[in-house]
Design a protein around this nucleic acid. Structure first.
Lengths: 341, 341
DNA sequence: TTGTATGCGTTATCAG
DNA sequence: CTGATAACGCATACAA
């Protein structure tokens, strides 16, 4: 008996288990899935055979047969960004709760290939969560049908029937401005994020609204989204007579804080600084950062909630819009009237 | 002609393309894969048909037929930990370079289920990168054959022939101690990480070695791995006459820094503080943190390099062991002889 | 060069 | 309750 069908190296298949147990593949399948009712003695034989062969059903084959992968994809523009890390973590956690796994794809801010990456990722699983703040509206619209079912995070779906979970940046900015106004600040600077960022635009237009209404004087600084961007702009902050500055996000605020510190500028004594996001380290800077907090786990959880509904053929849930929570810490204080002098 | 086989909603299959193009499925397959040589006019017909039907080959079916998913999995104990976020990002990036996607599974520090999670994740793809610092050696050994091909990150493979990429914590600690000794420190505290952490053990035994050799006096504090852990232990730091403290990691060091600051203790004036890892914010604390840096992208890249070799049936590459780089910043300074007074 | 036939490992339908 | 048998969608020897 020259071994030929024997191949202990390759993983056992359902057929080999069936053969060893002396039953049909269908029966093995039934036993493995706990479904249907199988005669106890047969079930036992199958279990033994499976154990003996160290049989593990092929997820792949099962997915093909069932038409479901129990896997979803997440596409983000930058895995180094704390915000997307939060989305990733909370989404992964939420999906795991329902027995789903997460495939992650980082477009690395490559707007040109973002669409292809999303498409490719989507085709590997059942659904998609898309973070693509810089993708043009028309491209998104064109992609939408091929990406479904999917949900958008941190960006509105123009006219598409795509659920989205977003942050109400306008409200956050309003809270920050009110807070600063209450402290006597009248003239404030905004450290603008990436020009193509949709969320930056929301912040900016809200601020311009305040300015247009004559409630504050606004000085805009082109900046960016990173620590270094904030750090680089610190030197120009005192020149234009602002007593407070709102940064695009916490990272930028950190940079500004650090730059101001190096310049010997007292915060909030001479100038107040506020961020946006409330990333983990915001409470640990010196001084601790006043910011508008978007709950780190909510985004991912809500996204999953909506995607889950879509996967089950339920009607697209209403959009979720989070109002950031104003977190007042030590980096903002009363306007120093002496500052302009 | 009552439509019955018409179903524009479901994705097109290779069969429908073949039918529309008037060729066999095999030919369509050849065209789609660019392989083999197909008559130009036929190829063109196939492409037109594919485009018309918006045909996208099923990744699933292809994977089943070929026996390859071009997907790998990453299992980490905590997605909130900056170190694993770095591994995730760099691994994802490196794998993408070779056209592979990443499936991420967070065991959420649940040591009991870690094995099952790894197994399940592994079965969904071609290979695995495992970060499981707390998993018992025997369990890992038992799991190894079922997880192959896989590579270990930040942990040694006891006696298994499993490639690993690790950090030479002992070397890092030696550098830190030498640095502190050079500043005149003789008695130092160690803020210990989780007792079950293998990397904590490496740090600890290295320090104990120094102490046993009479080169330093060592005071051990049970601590943990988070900011709060470091913060909580700050109050006890001055009591035992240490002039310097080495924290399990940067996070803990941040906490200690913050706690000491609140207590009005000057760093490094009264006590020096050093961390480990050099996570992004280490350079931005006040004072900036002296630490042992492990390059954030190397771990993931090397892990992919090794896994890639394994996937191609090449012999297991040699283990990669990174020697951390000493980064001296403002949080460490000359020992204050007046401290004990 | 092209088509036929078979396999990949499961699930599901439908008789018995 | 069980077992053939046909999908699932694609790739690939093999034959023509």
């Amino acid at each position: 008996m020259t071994a030929e069908t024997d191949d202990d190296t390759r993983p056992a298949t359902i057929s080999r288990v069936a053969e060893l147990a002396g039953v049909s593949r269908a029966t093995v399948s039934r036993v493995m899935n706990g479904s249907s009712t199988v005669a106890p003695h047969l079930a036992e034989r199958v279990r033994r055979a499976a154990a003996a062969l160290n049989y593990q059903p092929s997820v792949l084959a099962r997915s093909l047969a069932v038409g479901r992968t129990t896997t979803i994809a997440l596409v983000v523009p930058d895995l180094a960004n704390p915000m997307f890390q939060d989305v990733l973590r909370s989404l992964s956690h939420a999906a795991a709760t329902q027995g789903h796994r997460l495939l992650v794809a980082d477009s690395e801010e490559n707007v040109a290939e973002e669409g292809l990456i999303a498409l490719e990722a989507r085709r590997r699983c059942d659904g998609l969560v898309l973070c693509a703040p810089r993708m043009p509206d028309d491209e998104l619209a064109a992609l939408a049908p091929k990406l479904a079912p999917f949900v958008l995070v941190n960006r509105d779906a123009v006219g598409l029937s795509v659920p989205s979970v977003t942050v109400d940046y306008a409200a956050g900015i309003r809270d920050l401005v009110s807070h600063l106004q209450g402290l006597g600040h009248r003239r404030l600077a905004y450290l603008a994020g990436p020009p193509t960022s949709a969320s930056n635009l929301q912040r900016l237009s809200t601020l311009r609204g305040f300015a247009a209404a004559g409630r504050v004087e606004l000085v805009e600084h082109e900046c960016g989204a990173t620590f270094s961007d904030g750090h680089a702009v610190a030197g120009r902050l005192l020149d234009d007579g602002c007593t407070a500055v709102i940064a695009y996000n916490d990272l930028v605020a950190f940079g500004a804080l650090s730059g101001l510190h190096e310049l010997g500028v007292s915060v909030p004594g001479q100038i107040s600084v506020a961020g946006f996001d409330d990333i983990p380290f915001a409470q640990y800077t010196t001084p601790p950062l006043t910011t508008a907090a978007v709950p780190p786990t909510e985004l991912g959880e809500r996204a999953w909630q909506r995607l889950w509904a879509l996967l089950n053929g339920e009607p697209p849930p209403a959009d979720a819009r989070f109002r950031p929570r104003l977190v007042v810490r030590g980096s903002t204080g009363p306007a120093a009237s002496a500052n302009g002098a």
